[in-house]
Design a protein around this nucleic acid. Structure first.
Lengths: 357, 357
DNA sequence: ATGAAAGCGCTAACAA
DNA sequence: TTGTTAGCGCTTTCAT
């Protein structure tokens, strides 16, 4: 049966070719912008395409070229401003280089991350940028590499995997922030982070490089300052606002309440801030607070929050640039960029208080 | 030890068929999960696929089926928490129905919106969800419809376009918020919004339905309250944090400073809050403030901000559900959902002050 | 239940 | 320059 009443009849190169009275190949050359075509014929084809309202089928194009022009991005949580900003960095770099971005959310769940990667590979994305949610199970990431597609890691390193990676100076940042707290006289400093888990025992239990490095930096400075068993104040499990609130509440209700807290991201910090208030305590006077990520709201609270300012946009842009360079054929050994941070001291750090303890 | 796939060429149904000693069609039936195949042969094919590490090529699949399993989403600004949350609503609904989401940012620029739509159609997404940045130029949206793909509108209506639309009760929300301000005694109330433009003249100049409805509601209540020329306090152009800050600064530095402000989103509200502080003024005592969107930070400031709580997640989920139902073959006349909002009264509204005026 | 063969819309050799 | 033809990897008749 010939083309009688197809469902979604879209205009193809053949249709345009027929209308312009040229061969399919010639029409395709004009429409696809490759090869050589005389100006007169080009005009004819373009005119026909315009009249018919031709839209190239990128799918078919990708099938034959093997390239989709898409970069797949898998992040932990797009609602976290940290990731939103990083994604904008990626998108801007991608667009500038003529690539599109498919975004997938893993929710920091390894199974969802695997699914996302599988789908993205299925869609034949040209390359992937992933924030691996953990380092134990990275078979799906090896698969990417094996499939011949470049992979780049964002925010979290995976030493076992020789791929381009851009992170921030997690250990150094945590150290400097902790030192500010220790220098202010604090001996009971807590670190609250988003990684899955109940009780902290040791670093080997942490499978996310950034989290591990930060805890390591935190503990190192604490010990240098002569604080005993600082690990008792490491709190995991602040994986959502609700969970963060729970963790904060528990942390501040115990008999051994810390006098200072370092939060691993702004979402957690906000919940900690909220709980401190709810308990009738004051930030800075009663509890000092520093957080990773210079989120917009941190500068308008009373008091404003001292933060570790990460170059988040640059983080996204850099990793995308690295990937794109590979996509354009560059071959070189994997690069590992570590972006520096700065600390913005505001008003949330004060001397330790004994109130209520 | 698993045998690794060749790097250059990926495994196809033909490869699997050959390895399993069956025809391409049979292998495809097993691998694609359609048709009928005997259990024995199915097992053989599956085994061969596993050994060869077969990955379906979704591109090729989409080419022949005409369906990609992708929903294209074009939003104004993914960094705005309002959109992040709506997108999560969309993503959750999509995933539950077996669809994936490609996200594109228009930056509220009509040209970028058109480009995004063109690319998405090129990728043969099954349907689109768009927050149209303006109503003057909607040819690209008509094109979607013409291409046979369903379109659904998020957050902003387009009366000329008969498509599924989900918005919040913009006019009513603005009215109720304005009334709270007027009831508190305010006569000089400003409305600050993100739409492109310099000076406000009349409603006909506003091409975004949500913005227009809100301004309309705002002006109506002002006039009902006997306020003269309320339109002099309508401020456009708060399209980014920096621009919002500029607008707020100008608004608060004039001789005719308002005693109350209604902000159209939380990003703008934050900048207004910041500027109020910078000028040594106090929120509530000197300037009352209400904002659309119950952003996380609005409850922890001093004072906490009174907000219009929009069902943002539901907004995204509803529009996705509507689209998905159509994608599954449902035919019905376009639906227009208007979701109700609630006002959460906190501490940012007080009686008008004459300080410094 | 299985296989052979025809496309989907496009690009890429190769010919003319 | 332009045209012919052969696929890309998959699904889908239509036979068997």
């Amino acid at each position: 049966m010939k083309k009688t009443a197809p469902k979604t009849q879209s205009i193809t190169v053949s249709d345009v070719a027929r209308a312009a009275k040229v061969s399919k190949a010639t029409a395709a050359r004009v429409l696809g912008g490759y090869g050589v075509v005389s100006d007169m014929i080009r005009a004819d084809v373009l005119a026909a395409a315009k009249i018919l309202d031709y839209r190239p089928n990128e799918l078919a194009r990708s099938m034959t070229t093997g390239r989709s022009g898409i970069i797949g991005v898998v992040v932990g949580d797009i609602e976290n401003p940290f990731f939103s900003l990083a994604v904008r960095g990626i998108s801007d770099a991608a667009r500038a280089a003529g690539f599109n971005v498919i975004l997938a959310n893993s929710g920091e769940r390894i199974e969802d991350e695997k699914t996302a990667v599988r789908i993205l590979i299925g869609k034949r994305v040209d390359g992937l940028i992933v924030t691996p949610s953990e380092s134990r199970d990275i078979s799906h990431l090896r698969d990417i590499h094996r499939s011949g597609r470049p992979l780049a890691l964002l925010d979290r390193g995976l030493p076992d995997l020789g791929v381009d990676t851009v992170t921030i100076d997690d250990r150094g940042s945590a150290m400097r922030a902790t030192r500010i707290l220790a220098d202010a006289g604090h001996r009971n400093i807590a670190y609250v982070t988003a990684v899955e888990g109940h009780e902290y025992r040791d670093l080997a239990q942490i499978y996310t490089s950034s989290v591990r490095e930060r805890i390591d930096g935190f503990l190192t400075v604490c010990r240098d300052a002569g604080i005993e068993r600082p690990e008792r104040y490491v709190r995991l499990g602040a994986t959502s606002p609700v969970e963060a609130g729970r963790v904060a509440d528990k942390l501040l209700s115990g008999p051994d309440r810390p006098t200072a807290i370092l939060a691993s991201d702004s979402v957690i910090a906000l919940e900690i801030f909220r709980v401190i208030r709810q308990r009738g305590l004051r930030v800075s006077e009663d509890i000092s607070l520093i957080t990773f990520h210079n989120a917009d709201w941190t500068s308008v609270t009373t008091p404003p929050i001292t933060v570790i300012d990460q170059p988040v946009y640059a983080l996204g842009k850099s990793v995308a640039d690295l990937l794109i360079r590979r996509l354009k054929g560059e071959t070189r050994s994997p690069e590992r960029l570590i972006l520096p941070t700065t600390i913005i001291e505001r008003g949330s750090v004060g001397p330790p208080s004994n109130r209520g303890r």
